[in-house]
Amino acid sequence: MKAMELISLFDLPMGQEGTVSSGPLVTSGEATDRELALRLFEIGFVDGERVRIVARGYPGGDPVAVRVGNTMFALRRFEAERVLVAPLRKDEVNA
């Protein structure tokens, strides 16, 4: 079985499920970046959690409506790009 490539949550196609991998990324040492990562972690973007893009804003797809667990959140592009996901294959969705 080939390992799935990780992509940002923003790049996950609409309607496709994915699994959060490694939680929110901290790309710098700045306090605002750490605060954003903590906020994303607190609302449920934790390693192994299933997510799905359910809607995108127009134009450009920003913001995105994301279902994580049983809750839906709107994330701006820069927030969704901080979450890495492994897209699920169709045979993994109901597993």
Rank of each mutant, 00 (worst) to 15 (best):
V83S: 08
G57A: 05
R67C: 04
G61C: 01
V68I: 09
S28A: 11
E35T: 05
D33H: 10
V93Y: 06
P13A: 08
L88H: 04
R67G: 01
V46C: 14
I53S: 09
I53G: 05
L84R: 13
L12S: 04
L6F: 05
V54G: 01
P13W: 01
I43C: 02
E92Y: 08
G61W: 06
V64F: 05
Q16Y: 00
F73L: 15
T32F: 12
F73P: 03
G18M: 00
R76S: 04
R89F: 01
A80I: 10
P87E: 08
N70Q: 08
E81D: 15
G69N: 04
R67Q: 13
I43H: 00
V66N: 07
G15I: 03
E81W: 08
D62R: 15
R50E: 09
A74R: 11
G29A: 07
F73C: 07
G57D: 03
F10K: 06
A37T: 11
L9W: 02
G15N: 06
P63I: 08
G18A: 07
I43A: 03
A86Q: 14
D47N: 13
D11G: 00
R76N: 03
E92G: 05
G44F: 06
D11K: 09
I7N: 06
R39Q: 09
A31T: 11
F10R: 03
G57E: 02
F45Q: 09
S8T: 15
A74I: 06
V64N: 06
L84N: 07
Q16I: 01
R50F: 03
E35Y: 02
S22P: 00
N94E: 12
F73D: 00
G18T: 01
R89A: 08
A31I: 08
E30D: 15
K90N: 09
L9G: 03
Y58V: 12
P24S: 11
S8F: 04
T27L: 15
V51H: 10
T71R: 15
A95K: 13
T19G: 01
D11H: 03
R77C: 12
V68R: 11
I43P: 00
K2H: 06
G23C: 03
P59K: 11
L12P: 03
E35S: 08
S22G: 10
R56L: 09
A74C: 05
L6W: 09
L38H: 12
R52Y: 00
F10S: 02
I43M: 12
V83P: 07
V46Q: 15
E92I: 07
L38V: 12
E79P: 04
P63W: 04
